[in-house]
């Protein structure tokens, strides 16, 4: 009897354990990015830019070059790296508090300039690291620590749909929303991120992939239930699929 290994931890992940809570979507997205880097053999060519938020220690987990940026300024730093080193593949990795709140100006201008970078946007509908405060993407009537009676539109406005917001801009070439709640959706998410990277390599322009991610700790749910909540509720507010594809 012979044993053939058909799935293992990607080499582009270090042996340091993720600092994320059990079942967190960040871990899955880190893993699939590392798998893509292995598959496309990009380890010496790729540069990531880590955000402020739960993923602030991303440079500990990925075994390739990762820079760090001030809160929300990840697309600006990614722009600089791409302009100085145009032969590298540069991606910005951001959460929803980082991208849709404090970094709103940077993302819109980066998209409008059509910078040739890929943005990976993790949407878990709250500020995970600081304890689950209301984020721009929080759903209506969702309870958070700063909206204890649920988000109401009169006081807090409506959830921001970043991809729909960016899609009219001419510099934007590829936008897709995916989730990572089960094996099938993880494969789809991986294909979407891979497509974003491929577009960048072909110099097509700005691409952004939004990943609906669970936050079991701040949603006060078991990981499997939190994933079910995405499948049943959150996809109604943030519809999955391609929002824009230039090709």
């Amino acid at each position: 009897m012979k044993e053939k290994i058909i799935y293992k931890k990607p080499d582009s992940l270090t042996d340091i354990n993720f600092s994320y809570c059990p079942g967190c979507g960040h871990s899955t997205v880190h893993k699939i990015i590392a798998e893509i880097v292995d598959e496309l053999n990009l380890r010496e060519k790729i540069i990531g830019v880590a955000p402020v938020g739960c993923a602030v220690f991303a440079y500990n987990f990925w075994n390739f070059d990762v820079s760090e940026a001030a809160h929300g300024r990840t697309p600006a730093v990614a722009t600089a790296i791409k302009r100085v080193l145009p032969d590298r593949l540069v991606f910005s990795y951001q959460g929803d508090g980082d991208l849709a709140s404090i970094g709103m100006a940077e993302i819109i201008h980066t998209a409008n300039r059509g910078e040739n970078i890929t943005v990976i946007f993790i949407n878990n509908t709250n500020y995970g690291m600081t304890g689950g405060q209301l984020a721009p993407t929080t759903l209506l009537s969702q309870k958070t620590t700063t909206s204890p009676y649920g988000r109401d539109a009169k006081n807090y406005g409506y959830p921001v749909k970043m991809l729909e917001l960016l899609s009219p801009l001419e510099g934007v070439k590829y936008l897709e929303r995916v989730k990572v709640t089960d094996a099938a959706s993880v494969i789809k998410a991986k294909n979407a991120i891979k497509k974003g990277f491929t577009y960048q390599m072909q110099n097509i322009g700005f691409s952004m992939i939004e990943v609906l991610s669970s936050c079991p700790a701040n949603w006060r749910k078991e990981p499997v239930e939190a994933n079910k909540l995405i499948d049943e509720e959150i996809v109604k507010v943030f519809p999955l699929g391609k929002i824009k594809d230039i090709k």
Binding site: K4, I5, Y7, S27, T28
Partner: peptide, 19 residues
């Protein structure tokens, strides 16, 4: 490999047994 693909922490290795 469904378990390994969905594992957030890359904690599962899958082997195929060939007789």
């Amino acid at each position: 490999t469904l378990c390994a693909i969905s594992c957030p922490d890359a904690a599962i290795e899958v082997y195929e047994i060939i007789e």
